[in-house]
């Protein structure tokens, strides 16, 4: 599966691959809870964090993950304007590849960059998010968080709400959770989604009542405030009122609903502070913890060819 090629999108992974990565992540989480938070398995391996778009959190999460596996991590950050200096993204990546890394972690503002780069690189790639396409490790950590809590994915009502159109998280969530049998609802103002999103297997709704009623899981996406300037919604006030999640709406969901958010949260916009801080339902920090474990698992499964271990 992922070995040798990397993880560039959940649309390319099978159910078994997803389950294997999540399963391993639970074992990885145990390591993160010990006093010695490090195992020697990737000693001597080099992990490159190649970020063409700044994201301190995701980069740090990958960096911690790699270090807990004893890999060496090197960070390269390029402003998206680096190509104005004349070097193409392909050339940049190939230059770094010449230093013989074992895996690339890449974040880039262009959808489809992973497909382009994997045609030019021999080194496997783990996507840390491409444009408005996918953010596979976020999708996987969301799955892990739900699995952790609900012990299953199959048959759960999962609501993904917010700016679906511009969200790489929404797309990875539906690809991953869809394969594992969740009933996914997309809830969003019609300017931030199209009816065509039903083709991904989600149910598209503009009605908060329909979206949140009996939900097992609610994933609120971050609303990028600059969208308001482009006229996709008129004001944060109205957005919060009609499309945000507050204590009142949370009551529509199942009593044991969990609320997730990829962060950073706009308090009072997509998520009211009351919901964000609700210890009973909010799993936002759990997602961050699981993010490291998922990324340890992703790196571990991506590096090397692998064989079953026998020493008899």
């Amino acid at each position: 599966m992922v070995s040798g090629k990397g993880i560039i999108g959940l649309k390319y992974l099978g159910k078994d691959d997803i389950e294997k990565i999540v399963e391993t992540a639970f074992s990885m989480r145990d390591i993160s809870k010990r006093s010695v938070k490090k195992v020697p398995t990737l000693r001597g391996k080099t992990v490159i964090n190649l970020f063409f778009e700044s994201s301190t959190r995701t980069k740090t999460s990958f960096e911690i993950a790699a270090k807990r596996l004893s890999a060496d991590v090197v960070n390269f950050s390029y402003a998206s304007s680096s190509t104005s200096k004349g070097e193409t993204t392909i050339d940049t990546a190939k230059n770094i590849e010449a230093m013989n890394p074992d895996v690339f972690i890449i974040r880039h503002a262009s959808s489809g960059i992973m497909e382009l780069l994997s045609r030019h690189l021999k080194t496997p790639i783990i996507s840390a998010g491409d444009g408005t396409n996918e953010h596979p490790t976020q999708g996987l950590l969301d799955i892990m968080t739900i699995r952790d809590e609900k012990k299953r994915i199959d048959g759960l009502k999962v609501v993904v709400a917010g700016d679906i159109y511009h969200s790489r998280v929404a797309r990875s969530d539906i690809y991953g959770m869809g394969k594992l049998g969740a009933k996914v609802y997309f809830f969003s103002p019609p300017t931030l989604i199209t009816e065509d999103y039903a083709s991904l297997g989600a149910r598209v709704t503009y009605d908060a009542q329909e979206a949140f009623t009996d939900a097992d899981v609610i994933i609120m996406l971050r609303i990028q405030l600059e969208r308001q300037a482009t006229g996709l919604f008129p004001s944060t006030r109205e957005y919060a009122k009609v499309f945000g999640l507050n204590e009142q709406r949370l009551k529509l969901a199942k009593p044991d609903v969990i609320v997730m958010h990829p962060g950073p949260i706009n308090r009072g916009l997509e998520l009211s502070s009351g919901v964000a801080d609700n210890k009973e339902h909010s799993r936002v920090l759990k997602q961050v913890e699981n993010g490291v474990s998922i990324r340890m698992s992703a790196i571990y499964h991506t590096i090397g060819e692998g064989h079953e271990y026998t020493d008899n």
Binding site: S111, G112, N133, T194, D196
Partner: peptide, 13 residues
């Protein structure tokens, strides 16, 4: 084109 294919690829339509 905005449609099912652009949704799948995550490209603005």
């Amino acid at each position: 084109n905005e449609g099912v294919a652009s949704v799948k690829l995550g490209l603005n339509g």
